[in-house]
Every structure is written in structure tokens, then in C-alpha cells.
Amino acid sequence: MLLQLEDVVLTYGKIEALHGLSLEVAEGEVVALIGANGAGKTSTMRAISGIRGLSSGRIVFDGVDITKRRADQRMRKGLCLVPEGRGVFPGMSVRENLDMGAYTRRDKAAVAKDFERVFDLFPRLSERRKQTAGTLSGGEQQMLAIGRALMSRPKLLLLDEPSMGLAPMLIQQIFTIIAEIAHQGTTILVVEQNAQQALSRADRAYVLETGQIVKTGPGQELLKDPSIREAYLGVA
């Protein structure tokens, strides 16, 4: 397993957001995490990326217990999160944001190649290299955030609601790009409100309800599950 969460408990002050959550991601998989607003999806991503420490439980990544590691240390091990709401550096140019993705890398030649790869995936970013990230449109910022994460060559790419606030056309495009990234060999864990898209494209999925996993299985199977169709796909 590339990533394992065991009985993860995460709290904000007195509020317990995750009550003993366990999940796994194998190398090469695309795994989706779906759930209603406030279910704890972002909290799960914060726990994995190290933005917030755990109250109890354990996280193992690539065979190493990373529970006590800081976020930047986890990133150096090959784990990169595209946070909810994109989190591009607003005062930096597109180019500088991408540079930030490669912040920990010393292999200049390979970094230069990855720039090309990112610009191939997102031609729109290429045209706007010098533009300040804060002035990009929402969709462009999302592309930049994903591109920036790719610049770190992650073993595991974490995406928190990549389709949030995007027009249907753009959602399609983002998911196609995510599929392309997966195809190129990156393992992906993606959080989504857009359950239809996420389930139809994921190898496996977890359903999160009030801080606990309530269901798991192959994406296509969950797509047919009546209770899921009712709760997350708006089909009675």
C-alpha cells in the first residue's frame, strides 16, 4: 500500500471532525473520496498532508510512519496536496507558482522537462506565464494549482474538490486531465462533491459520513448502489 490511514482521529478544539477513519490507497490507483458538506473530506486531506496533526491514529506513506512528520517533510517524501480553494500564491506569477512546486527539487534538467509537461497539459498557463496568479480566473487558478503540484513529481497526488466552482465544460476538462495524469503513472486520491464524475472515473471510492467511512468499493459498483444514487447523485 502506498498510503494507509489507521483509526485517524482529528479534532478542532472540542469538535471531533474525524472519528477513527481508516483508508488505503495502492500504488497506481485513482481513489475517490465522496461525502456531503462537512463530512470531513477536507479534514482527511489535512490529516494526510500534515497541515493538521492527529489526536490519535497512524498514517503510513510508502512504508514509513509519517504521523509525526511536518507537512513540508511529507511533501519531500512525495505527497502533494492541491488544497480546497486552490491556494495559489496570489502575488506570484504563474511561472513563480510553478517554481514553488519544484521548490525542493535540485534536478534542474528534469524540472525543465516537467515545465514543458505542465504547459502541454495546460496550454492556457503557458500563455499566461508572466501573469500574476491572483488575477487568473477560477478555472485557470485550479489548473495552476494542479500544475504546481505536478512540478513536485509526487508519488501521490491529493486533490481536494478540483471541480469546485467551475463551469461544466471546465469540469470535464479537469477530469480528463486528471485521468491523463493518472495514466502517466501518478497515484491519485481525489475528494469530490461531483460524485457522478468521481465515481465513474475512480478505480475505487470511499464514502464519508460525519467523520467516518460508511462504504467502500469499486467506483462503478458504488455508482449503481441505490443508497448512493439517492444521497449523492440526486436520483431516487
Binding site: I51, A71, F89, T104
Partner: peptide, 14 residues
Amino acid sequence: RAVAQDPDTAALMG
């Protein structure tokens, strides 16, 4: 500058 603009995301970038 990254830490000044967004400390959490800066940490996510290593």
C-alpha cells in the same frame, strides 16, 4: 514570499 502569502500552502510545497 510563499510563507508571507500563504503559510499552509507554502508548507505543502515543501
